[in-house]
Write a protein that binds this DNA or RNA. Structure first.
Lengths: 122, 122
DNA sequence: CGGTATCCAAAAGGATACTG
DNA sequence: CAGTATCCTTTTGGATACCG
């Protein structure tokens, strides 16, 4: 893989965009939550906590369009919509979770590095 | 890992921030470029192509502070600064590259999903 | 309940000029 | 060469109100 492949063209290349979707602020949290089990819209909101309706809806639409999330709207009143991962989404979630787990595991080293960095400059 | 752990506190929790650093627009590209070999500042600029001086400098500082990137400023004229990955940075780069490789490998399925999604709505 | 539409504030990011 | 400082534009994201 060549880095310039990711930025050479005017419009960002397609797989660079998918990477941005799955690693976006809310994309990461949605994928990890849905990897565990399917959620309704309002369940996801409560689960993630700080996300606004607008951003959650937007994130879910982007991930659904990319084929990572399946949206199941049941024709009942009141409306009920369940979100789950597709096979593609489960693969993405596994990758993202691996990265998230790594940051958790290595956090102490990062904090130590920051202390050294800040001290060297004060 | 619980998703709400990532968003519960006022300030984002620390490992969530590290995740944002390594998956940021330019962080991804810097890590992948440096995984291959060390680069000078201007080499990175040319390699990544579309990044501004400001953003490259900022990204490198953030990654250096997190202990992922090593900065080696040689006291010569004209100045020469080499950037490389630390051991921690190599681990991060491997994770990020795995994710990037996955998006590349699965791009066809994503594009197909998008076509279906867009057609179903037109 | 599960959204959309609108407006506004905040943050990210680029262009340019300048410096050791 | 390797940045920093400043200004300005673009993008992101939250709050609110409304709808089927």
């Amino acid at each position: 893989m060549d880095v310039s492949d990711w930025t050479a063209r005017e419009e960002m290349c397609p797989h660079r965009l998918v990477l941005e979707h799955v690693t976006s602020r809310w994309g990461v949290l949605v994928l990890i939550a849905l990897e565990e089990r399917s959620h309704r819209f309002s369940e996801l909101r409560r689960r993630i906590g700080s996300v606004s309706e607008k951003m959650l809806a937007q994130t879910l639409q982007i991930l659904e369009r990319d084929g990572l999330v399946h949206r199941d709207a049941k024709p009942v009143i009141p409306p009920r919509v369940d979100y789950s991962l597709t096979e593609l989404g489960r693969e993405a979630a596994a990758q993202v979770r691996a990265l998230a787990t790594w940051t958790e595991r290595r956090m102490d080293d990062v904090l130590k590095a920051r202390l050294e960095y800040d001290e060297a400059r004060s």
